[in-house]
Nucleic acid binder design. Structure first.
Lengths: 252, 252
DNA sequence: GCAAAAGTGTTAACTGTACACCCATGA
DNA sequence: TCATGGGTGTACAGTTAACACTTTTGC
């Protein structure tokens, strides 16, 4: 649910929404982008939600998710994957703050709404919240510190996390969370954050390098108070070749 | 879309349906349950669809899928898993026969409908189509012989197949397609059919037995013109233990 | 020279894969 | 006695997992 005015809600399908779990990474921990209803209730996580909106009858589900992402981040070409549909009759409007929010943003706040959830991976520094529609209302929260959200969004977040964990083991999608140039240690840390467990440094490096999907840029970090690291970039060509041959497992 | 009369469609949500890809196995090949619109067009696969229906606003998505399954099979406790949501604006009504069908079954045949797809595994011999609502209209088709379906149901079938293939490698859900007592050869054949490739007999047996989720019933086949096989059953208790410890891979 | 992270190889255990013959039954 | 599918073990190759020290930089 975004915070557009009620006016043009007539064109929106009252029964179907999309919600986007947008993940970011600051080289230290995993974040999720949340919006705040700014409700009259005391500040709490129950006032926060992942961004989403009702769909237009003229767009498909992916397009609706892309629209929501664009409104928030003004980034195109974002990695996006469907999590699935959530449709409990009482999934929204269980709590008082949910109902207050719905009344503020929905032409038909009582309507039955099923939502199609997506997750998305973005480079946090490129993230540029549009002050107009989301001033003071959008921000990053460390995934580990989120314990509750509005509506059924906590369940959606957990489902997104699980799918990300499953997927990152068999496809190198993590690059979408890193800067274009990154070090193996940063990639290593990213995998540890997503999978929430330690991975052996030497084994990690060997496996990821053996996939031949990284290009060593022969550049070094500068200004770091320790041995500077080599910088790498993701090699999409080699990855496409690899995908066609098919590979099953990074083995983490 | 099932073939109920239009009468009680008012209670149905006009924008959201569920569709069920129901798989069966006859110890020789994999089947999918299709219904026939009985349209005036020449008989073709484009007239067939997987069963589905609009949802009621009082039920959740799983319940809607279970309702569709119950109407068709009168079996409870069916293995059921969500595939995902399909929502192209023109996903239904592309072909003339699609539109004819929609007009026959929908109170609002022009409505935008997104569908939540499920797949389900059933024991074919237990399948008992209800003559009342599906007389002559429901039947099993070998998955390998399906090349086209009404609406976007061919895409949904393929997505269901892919998910089944992914899932059967990491969870022993195949038992839902076999009789309660089965032989290792039958299980072996099932895996080969689903994955569409040959699997080494000795390696298959070793792996599946090492999971300790089968109970040898100390019973033999009777009346077979060859060495009779041991019969096994699925051991749910051991499986639950195993699931909790977590296992990643059957390794096929 | 010290703190901090980068970078590097080897071994042992395990897992997957390939492969061929004898067995029990009904006809 | 023959045809049919059931049932079994081993050896090799590849993969994973565990583990510790040296290097380069900024301060």
């Amino acid at each position: 649910m975004n915070l557009q005015s009620k006016k043009n809600k007539k064109e929106l399908n009252p029964n179907v929404s999309v919600d986007c779990v947008i993940f970011g990474f600051d080289l230290d921990q995993l974040y999720v982008l949340l919006i705040d209803s700014g409700s009259t209730e005391a500040f709490s996580q129950a006032r926060m939600a992942v961004p989403g909106d009702l769909i237009f009858d003229t767009e498909n589900l992916d397009e609706a998710a892309i629209r929501v992402l664009r409104e928030l981040t003004s980034i195109e070409n974002i990695y996006l994957e469907q999590i699935g549909a959530f449709g409990d009759p009482n999934r929204i409007g269980k709590k008082d703050s949910d109902r207050e929010w719905l009344e503020a943003i929905r032409a038909q706040p009582e309507a039955r709404v099923i939502t199609v959830a997506y997750y998305s991976l973005v480079r946090m520094p490129n993230f540029n919240p549009k002050a107009s529609s989301f001033a003071k209302s959008a921000g990053w929260a460390p995934v580990k510190e989120v314990f509750d959200l509005a509506f059924d969004h906590y369940d959606i977040l957990q489902a997104g996390l699980e799918q990300l964990r499953r997927k990152i083991k068999i496809q190198p999608i993590g690059f979408n969370l890193l800067p274009e140039k990154f070090t193996l240690s940063q990639l290593h840390k990213l995998y540890e954050c997503i999978l929430d467990k330690e991975l052996d440094k030497r084994n990690f490096r060997r496996k990821i390098l053996n996939l031949n999907i990284l290009t060593n840029l022969d550049e070094k970090q500068i200004g770091v108070p320790h041995k500077p690291s080599q910088l790498f970039e993701f090699n999409e060509e080699n990855y496409k070749k690899l995908s066609k041959e098919g590979f099953d497992n990074f083995g983490f």
